[in-house]
């Protein structure tokens, strides 16, 4: 999946509200999107400013076919992956 496609899909997921936040029996309150401290609109603005240099990806640590994407821009750190039909956010913080 290209960076352009990744960016398109994650923005679409945020716009449509088709996303979830990863949890391990607890709420990661440092994920500022999950706690509502940042809105979807604000995060979309950050992502929209990203280009390929702000993006990296790696294999999920136990789902080999899933790529975990990281966007770093303006001190924001946004980590997510896609499991169709949803997008899962792991981290959203400064």
């Amino acid at each position: 999946m290209s960076f352009r496609e990744t960016k398109y899909l994650v923005i679409k997921a945020l716009q449509k509200g088709e996303f979830q936040h990863e949890a391990r029996n607890e709420i990661d309150d440092k994920n500022l999107l999950s706690t509502g401290e940042i809105s979807t609109e604000e995060i979309i603005e950050v992502i929209d400013r990203c280009n390929g240099t702000h993006h990296s990806c790696s294999e999920h640590h136990f789902l080999e076919s899933v790529k975990v994407h990281v966007l770093k821009r303006d001190d924001w750190y946004i980590k997510f992956y896609f499991i169709d039909p949803d997008t899962f956010f792991i981290s959203v913080h400064k």
């Binding site: 979830q20 936040h21 990863e22 949890a23 709420i27 706690t35 509502g36």
Partner: peptide, 18 residues
Amino acid sequence: GDVVSIPAQSTPAVREAR
């Protein structure tokens, strides 16, 4: 039976509880 994810719609409740 573990809680593995939280949907976007639960954010207002998370915010209030926090």
